[in-house]
Each structure stands twice: as C-alpha cells, then as structure tokens.
Design a protein around this nucleic acid. Structure first.
Lengths: 225, 225
DNA sequence: TTATAGATGATAGTATTACTATTATATACA
DNA sequence: TGTATATAATAGTAATACTATCATCTATAA
C-alpha cells in the first residue's frame, strides 16, 4: 500500500498554493532545508531562490513574506502531527496509554515520512523546536489569529486536552497542561542540546529522559486525589 | 531609606557601559519603551536614535546590534528578578512557602521599581514574556552561551531548582521543572492575553489563575510519594 | 489548430535596514 | 593648557524586503 498524504492548508497562508506546482513544492522543500541549516534570521527569499534556481520574485508569488512561510510550514507540521496522534491512538481505549503515546510523539525525534515527498519531517521537527514560537511571538499575533493561522496548533491542543480529561475528568487545567506538554517537549529538547545546564538531561541527551520527565509531570498532576 | 540598586552586567554584552552615561541610560530606557510598544521586529537603532534625539551611530557605540541589546535587557531582567526572589524569600524557612513565592513573583505583573530609575520593570516584564525566548532561539546560541550571556537565567534556574530540592530532595528533575515554571509562567500569560483558547484562563484573564495552575503542577509533581 | 490563461524567467527599481567610517565639537579633568 | 572622552553630524555601503514590468513557455479548451 502506497499512500499519499495531503495536508489541507488554510489558503490565506499563501498567495499561490505551493502544493500545486513543482516550484511551489521546491519552495517548501528548500525553505525547510535552508532554515534548518542557517536559521530563520539568515533565511531570505533571495538566497532561497538561488538554491532553487528561480528568482526572488518567483518566491514572492507564493508567499507574502518569510514570516508567512514560516507560519505555513509550522501549521503544516501541527496538522501532520495531529494526524499522527489520531492515527497512532486510534483504537486505544485506555486514555493513559493514549496520553503517553502523545507525549512520546511530541518528544521523539521524527522520522522522515515518505508519504509526503517534498517535506522532510525530521528537519521540520527541528525547525518547529527552534523557530516555532517566533510564529506567534509577534505584534501581529491577534490578526494572524483572526485569520485562523494557528488553528492546527489549537486543534492539537484540543485533542490533547480531551485526552487529559478522559484520564481525569475533574482536572481543572487541561488546555494549559496540553500547551505545557507541547511546549516543554520542544523546549527541553532545545535546552538539552544547546543550554544543557538548564535541564537534567545533560549527561545522556536522550529523548527518553524528556519523556520520563513529562510523564512524571503530567501524571502526577492529573492523578485523582 | 532611599537606595539605588545596580545590576552588575557581563561587560561583553555591550561596547560601552550604558549605565555610565545619560545617553546610555536613555538607550536602555527608550529601547524598552519602543520594543514594548512596537515589538522587537519593528525596532531599529535608527528609530531609537530619533526617539532619543541622538544618531544611529551613537547607539552603535553602546551595543553591537539590536539582538545584543535585547540580550542585555533580558539578562538585566533575570538578574533583577533573582534579586527580588532572594530578597523576598530571605528568612523564609519553609521551602514550600519559598517556592510559592517564586511562582507568584514569576507569574505576577511587575510593579515599576523606583530603585532603578531608567528601567521600567513592568514594561520589561512584558518584553521578556513576548520577546525573551528570541534571545536564545538562534544559531548563535552556542557562542552566546560561551560568552556567558545567559548566566543570569541559569542562576535563576539554579536558585529555583535548589528550592525545589529543599522541598523534595529526591525529585529527579529540579532543573527542568525550574525552567518549566519560568517559561510557563510567561507563556501562559502570553497565551491568556493573545491566544486565550490555548489556556484555561480565557474568562478571567487573571494572573492568579496561572499561579494556581503552576502551584498545582509543581506541588503535585514534587510531592513525596 | 489556434487562442488564451496560467506559470515562470529575466530584469529593474525602491525604501529600509544594518551597519562602518570620518570629522568636528563639546566637556571634563589633570 | 593640554588631553582624553563623549557626542553630533554627515556620508557611504551592502544587504534586505519588497514591487513592477515584460517576455516566454506550456497546457488545454474552443
């Protein structure tokens, strides 16, 4: 069985749908590579165009600016991740096992998914770790939110908070705990690799330590008392 | 009693010490105002210079670039906050009360501190919430770390993790829990005000709700079991 | 088969940003 | 009085973040 998985994106995120053309898919593909390698600050449409063999104006036909492109690829990531979670927790009845799977998915280095040829999920995962919060930490956050740019993130948060409530129906902070899990899965990874003394994982640098930390944090909080 | 409180800064953070001159103090003061009002992306040394009534080159004599300036003011904030914590938890014997005070200090809107005339801590607190993580979420994080730019943040993390261990000597993740408290105190505030559906505080929008959430999170985790 | 819409390429141009350099002036202090 | 220090004024450069125009190529509907 060979399937192609297509993420449906909010079409206010782009000017021309990058999924529809070779150039569009290349823009997404090479953006991910460039941002991963040199960081979002160093990333420009001109340099990207050179990498692809098109022109700056060519890229601008697809995305309004580089911030919008970052918003696009992170939104794509959250949608993809929600799908992974829904898929992998399907038919699991025990909500505790579900939540553990979620934590594991969030905190584990991703494998590139062959179903989506032009997106390297492994690189994208790393981008979301180090650049993801720049998407909303801006003065336009309100307007971007009105245009539903953060819907995939919010949906993921909803899914996780629903699982939390399944585990512990009376827990009072399911959404805040959900964002805590998401953000900390990423931030502890960033700290572990870049500012290790801010974590307790500096010796091993293992994803599994972060998972253990998050499991401990989450399940002691939501345990019925 | 009228005291002047001076934060000693790592002098690799600036080219010329802004505390020493009127212009320097103005650069810090007006940067904080500008970044608070328009955000870090819109902030340039040219616009700042116009606000102050000096020239772009004048600002460059104090700081290498705007990222370095942001690093400076956030480092200043963390140092100042650590002092507040040490001061306010002094003579408190019960580590649980200490930790609660820490959480409260982290999650409460700050009052402007008259002891530091040219820094508006209230605005700076908001800047650290919305721009603070941009300081380390860069490709230069390793080099900046070598130059000790994040020492104040790390010290704060150490102080908090020491209190956590006082509460619960066997707790395995004191540092990661400390950064979780710090980051979540800020991020839940940002979400509450900008993307409220990601939190459980959208109705009240009260700092006290965030404090309650963090207290619940922290004390259920470190409780002896 | 032709007309045409859609996508791309090539080129040019602008305002702003992120700096660096130089020179002159003001002040401070020894 | 001389000298160091800080600042102001000005100029200049390379890169960034766009916008605009026009020619070409290609797929497909008339």
């Amino acid at each position: 069985m060979k399937m192609k998985l297509q993420v449906i994106m909010n079409d206010d995120l782009f000017l021309r749908d990058p999924e529809h053309t070779e150039l569009g898919r290349n823009i997404v593909k090479y953006s991910i590579q460039y941002i991963h390698q040199f960081g979002f600050e160093a990333f420009t449409f001109k340099k990207l165009a050179e990498d692809i063999g098109t022109t700056e104006a060519g890229v601008y036909r697809y995305f309004e600016n580089k911030h919008r492109l970052l918003t696009y690829i992170t939104a794509w990531y959250w949608s993809w991740l929600e799908y992974q979670i829904v898929f992998q927790t399907n038919n699991v009845n025990d909500p505790v096992i579900k939540l553990k799977k979620v934590i594991k998915l969030l905190a584990t280095a991703v494998q590139d998914d062959d179903q989506t040829s032009h997106v390297n999920e492994k690189l994208l995962h790393n981008i979301v770790i180090s650049e993801g919060s720049k998407v909303y930490l801006t003065k336009q956050v309100g307007e971007d939110n009105k245009q539903q740019f953060f819907k995939p993130y919010k949906e993921l948060c909803s899914v996780i908070s629903a699982i939390i409530l399944e585990c512990s129906p009376k827990y009072k902070y399911p959404r805040s705990l959900a964002t805590t899990i998401i953000e900390m899965a990423h931030l502890q990874n960033f700290f572990m690799n870049n500012l290790p003394s801010l974590t307790d994982f500096s010796k091993t640098k293992e994803d599994s330590d972060i998972i253990a930390f998050l499991n401990d944090l989450v399940f002691s909080s939501i345990k019925k008392r």
